[in-house]
């Protein structure tokens, strides 16, 4: 059923194209601009406006980032917390979701409620701080990994997926003599790969981007700093001392705070930007699982 195109339709098409182009430019500009500044000579950036393409190419900014002790240590800690935190989180949330989604589990109702409550009521910053202090979690690496491991929201995403798996699979395995652990590892989990991928992405991004816990719990420990916290400190310095260019000019280096910040930003962005497009179909289904799409 082909319709004739009127003036309105053509205007609409033009609007669509303009909108999409503007949208893409506005979304990408800040990132491409940061990328260009990170590859541009620090002094040149001050005198020469950089938009999309570097004016004086250099790798010095990146060399400076990787040479900085603070950043190297922060990178190690960030990678460690991301890997350990994501693994732990995935395992415990999957087990919790599995337990709660078993129809015959004796405490199904009360145990579900126990976790749903945690989504709406929490102690808040200060009581949580005091509790962590008492548990000797402050001033330690484990404060990054252990407290956030179970999250009711992530658990519910997995549980909603598990609820969609037919009960007959579990029942036939039970007839064959499989226990609940065996059913979890060899029947349910292999079917849950898409939702596990979603949760892995969510949690890994959370860990990669986290900084507040580093500031609150491990402020005095430079060896426990994370990348985003280092970026944040640089940003705070930049907010305070905008315009101390003269001092830099005499220092003999061509690396400015702006240029090193740009390079550090790119370094922290790159891993995520390379991973997320490939996981797209997982997180799209992960997000829409459950009630909304039915």
């Amino acid at each position: 059923m082909k319709k004739k195109y009127g003036v309105g339709d053509i205007a609409f098409e033009v609007f669509l194209v303009v909108f999409l182009v503007v949208f893409v430019v506005v979304t990408l500009y800040p990132v491409i601009n940061t990328l260009a500044i990170s590859f541009n000579d620090g002094f040149d950036t001050i005198t020469h406006r950089i938009h999309f393409i570097p004016h004086m190419w250099t790798l010095d900014n990146y060399k400076a980032v990787f040479a900085k002790e603070g950043y190297r240590q922060a990178a190690i800690v960030t990678v460690a917390r991301t890997v350990l935190g994501t693994l732990l989180s995935l395992v415990v949330n999957a087990i919790l979701a599995y337990v709660i989604s078993r129809k015959k589990f004796l405490f199904k109702k009360s145990f579900s409620l126990f976790w749903v409550i945690t989504m709406y009521v929490n102690g808040g910053l200060i009581p949580t701080y005091i509790v962590f202090q008492k548990l000797h979690l402050t001033n330690s690496f484990w404060v990054y990994v252990i407290p956030g491991a179970v999250s009711a929201f992530n658990m519910l995403v997995i549980r909603n997926f598990m609820n969609g798996i037919p009960d007959s699979l579990e029942e036939s395995a039970q007839i064959d003599g499989a226990g609940y652990f065996k059913i979890f590892t060899s029947i349910i989990s292999p079917l849950c790969k898409p939702v596990y991928a979603t949760i892995t992405l969510f949690v890994a991004v959370y860990h990669w981007n986290a900084w507040f816990d580093a500031m609150i719990y491990n402020k005095m420990h430079d060896e426990l700093t994370v990348l985003q916290y280092e970026l944040m400190k640089q940003l705070q310095t930049a907010m305070k001392s905008a315009g101390s260019v003269e001092g830099l000019k005499n220092s003999g280096t061509t690396i400015t705070p702006t240029s090193i910040r740009a390079a550090a930003t790119i370094v922290t962005m790159v891993p995520i930007l390379f991973v997320y497009p490939f996981l797209q179909r997982y997180f799209v289904t992960g997000l829409t699982i459950g009630g909304v799409k039915e």
Binding site: V99, K104, F111, F114, G123, P127, V131, A149, G179, Y180
Partner: peptide
């Protein structure tokens, strides 16, 4: 028939109490 479910839920219950419920008790401060 469900030792795995009971043991893991007990451990998760302890975890939940420590990290989610005890801080709420901290409201008394």
């Amino acid at each position: 028939r469900q030792p795995f479910l009971l043991i893991s839920s007990a451990l998760l219950l302890i975890y939940g109490i420590i990290f989610y419920y005890v801080p709420v008790l901290g409201w008394i401060t």
